[in-house]
């Protein structure tokens, strides 16, 4: 990655300030004009490097207290279709295909958020019915040890 790109990406990995001109504040730190930063962000968006600029809510505080990791055992030819079906559920925030092992056959992973256990069980059942995938395992979160935003400055350093 080019040095100047790395600098911009690192600066953008910090949350935006709640001020009238938040992009100008970032541009100031980078020593570049605000307009140039805005056009760079647009270019990163167009290239898919930035998926979006948006808000992240505190899930626990908006009523989604129950989160479950559901891992699915999907026949390989059906993986793509199942992934798309699961991604279509508003309660599913993350849906990833992952590597398997001989003693660990789960290849599709979804994070399901709901208000309570009952609601998440209903959602999971509906995911199973809609996709036709019947082999799965549900793991509710017992404790959250850590939850932060990926720190790109550290990761790219």
């Amino acid at each position: 990655m080019k040095k100047d790109v790395k600098k911009i990406i690192s600066a953008l990995s910090d949350p935006l300030a709640l001020v009238s001109k938040p992009y100008a504040a970032v541009a100031g730190r980078l020593g570049m004009p605000e307009a140039r930063l805005l056009s760079r962000i647009q270019a990163y968006k167009d290239a898919g490097v930035i998926r979006r600029v948006g808000t992240v809510l505190g899930h626990f505080k908006v009523g989604y207290k129950c989160n479950a990791l559901v891992m699915w055992q999907v026949k390989e030819p059906k993986l793509e279709a199942a992934g798309r079906i699961f991604a279509g559920f508003p309660q599913v925030t993350h849906c990833y295909a992952r590597q398997t092992y001989p003693d660990w056959p789960y290849n599709l992973y979804t994070m399901v958020h709901a208000r309570d256990k009952k609601e998440s069980e209903t959602v999971i059942k509906s995911m199973s019915v809609k996709s036709g995938v019947t082999m799965f395992k549900v793991q509710f979160t017992i404790r959250e040890f850590k939850k932060i935003r990926s720190d790109l400055k550290e990761i790219l350093a």
Binding site: M1, I9, L12, S13, D14, P15, L16, L18, V19, S20, P22, I41, Y44, A47, G48, V49, I50, R51, R52, V53, G54, T55, V56, L57, G58, K61, V62, R149, S150, L152, I155, L156
Partner: peptide, 28 residues
Amino acid sequence: MLAYFKKLKKDGMLRYIAAMFDLRKLGI
């Protein structure tokens, strides 16, 4: 609007506003 956002932040409803990256496209 700014005051509203600051209140949401204070109440814990808003965690932050930021650019969301596709880490894979960054080679991560």
